[in-house]
Design a protein around this nucleic acid. Sequence first.
DNA 1: CAGGACTGTGATATCGTTCTCAGAAATCAC
DNA 2: GTGATTTCTGAGAACGATATCACAGTCCTG
Lengths: 348, 348
Amino acid sequence: MSMRSRSVVTIADVARACGVGTMTVSRVINGKKHVSEAMVRRVEEAIARLNYQPNEAARTLKGRTSRTLGLIVPSLSDPFFSQCAHAVQQVAAEQGYMTMLFACEASHSVEAEELSQMRSRNIAGILIVPSSENSMEQLKELRRSGMPVVMMDRTIAGIDAGEVMVENLEGSFRATNHLIDHGHRRILCVGYDREYNSIGQRMDGYRKAMQTAGLQPQYLLVKRGVPVGPRVVAALRAVKPPTAIFSLNNVTSVAVLSALKREKIRIPEQVAMVGFDDFELASLLAVPLTAVRQPAAELGRQATRMLIDSLRSGSGNQQMSARIVLPTELILRQSCGCEPLAQITPLD
Amino acid sequence: MSMRSRSVVTIADVARACGVGTMTVSRVINGKKHVSEAMVRRVEEAIARLNYQPNEAARTLKGRTSRTLGLIVPSLSDPFFSQCAHAVQQVAAEQGYMTMLFACEASHSVEAEELSQMRSRNIAGILIVPSSENSMEQLKELRRSGMPVVMMDRTIAGIDAGEVMVENLEGSFRATNHLIDHGHRRILCVGYDREYNSIGQRMDGYRKAMQTAGLQPQYLLVKRGVPVGPRVVAALRAVKPPTAIFSLNNVTSVAVLSALKREKIRIPEQVAMVGFDDFELASLLAVPLTAVRQPAAELGRQATRMLIDSLRSGSGNQQMSARIVLPTELILRQSCGCEPLAQITPLD
DNA sequence: CAGGACTGTGATATCGTTCTCAGAAATCAC
DNA sequence: GTGATTTCTGAGAACGATATCACAGTCCTG
């Protein structure tokens, strides 16, 4: 009846086929010593012939590492995260690890749920772009129980985990200075209110540049979900409107561009603009956007290496305090009013 | 020494805490019958108090379903796939399934590797946007061994699996007709050469429209990796150049737009354009792109439901022959030369 | 050549859960 | 009241892999 026949080949089948014990086969699979050359070949031949694949659930249960990393990002639609995720998967695969990728879509409850799944799934280690301070408890607890964790792009205070960040402050500082150097005095900083610390760092960079130049910082911060476009338009209609906008991230940049287009406000003539976080299509927009480029792939790679290193070095709690900060790059395009320096890069 | 203390709570701990056997706890966890009301409460209280979480590896090993779906997409950077993946994860989570997401980045060997991992990981079922005919063997074999499979967006011949597709032919037919209706006679069809059947269907739709109008189809097909932009530019410099371009997908659309921009060829004045596959920023481009929108999220949702249904109905081999085809929508913007019908949608 | 160290191999216990079966108590049928 | 069913419960055997231990041999080393 049920075609659910146990057609799966087990280690015992292989052992039987070779006329040896299961331990010998196990040793061959794991590349351990104490197996004769001839035996290795014999077993490998049988494995290939029977198309045997070790049952991961059994291996995991027995206590060995699950060879699986958990990767939690806020969203997959943001190219920054998808690039990052791709890099993680690539490096992990090279090192023999699988990746379980989760997108919590900025939902705290989803993130908590996913984190709680991590333990029951015997995940070897966690790479996370934390969405909310709320998940702190879950993460702390996992960390306490010895789970290696590396935070990417953002950090949560009070968690002793690896960190791979970008130079948010420096990037914002440079971007803001660029606007100042081009004569702008009233620069509006637009973004989501301190959702996480990297946004705070970007705000700090902006503020530092403004104050250094003796200018008054000016913020338009909203909660995520509140339409920011109309607010910006309103700000531009005020007396003494800002002559430039510094957008704290990708999502707000697009929202602002969309609103400005709708209202037929010209960039950079009526208002100049620089955004934090570059994206592929930025150069093909109606007004190519000057933006701070983050090394998304590099961030993913470094974070994964850090995690795997700490996995390899036993339950290396000490190693986890590592911290890497990657540089950013200001990509000049037309939205800030100065001619682009570089040629348009072909997207082919 | 090693902080790797077995701090993990097992079902035996819970049982001991309640003074019952493990089977009783197991029954409570799985919501089975034959447990008294009072006992259920007692056990649930203990589970909560001890923060017990069942070990998935053990459950999986014992033969129960792993409650995990494998999702294989060609790439995460393509918004079509990331939207689709997101929808899959959402529906799966609602139904109590986890998702293992893999991006094979169009590499056949990676795809094969990932497929082979599926079995050893006791994946319950597979959702795949197949990249290559090469993976056919792997997939066929999995299918033979009773693994439920649903193919999304593309199909591979000779595999008896569920299919969720979009109306490629109809969408292309309509898009091409739109150009024809606006007076275009020489329309160039640009894309990657028949990589998979959905591209073939799009080409068929284009051809059907052209032939119906008594026009000569004209193709510019390259292999993935070959820069298509310069070829298009060259084609436009020929005598009797095409007056419109129909791009078979997202990636070629962007490549073409980029090349046209580089060469300062104006759209739609010098050449009109329609692309298959819409994307978020299409409306903010220098020339907002008219495109065939595919219901990416709906595709993911339907596919996931189909897979889970077949999982629930036992090893329902019959059910797997199901096939769903979703409609597309032509989004009119300026690149095709006619005014956009709709207002610009706010991106906030 | 005796004692130690290393190599090659297999029996057996074990990981945490669920399945099978069996027993005890309660309920029902007549 | 006796037998049959149903409810509630637990002991023990899996699931498939690996760690541990045990036991031959083999190779040194003095």
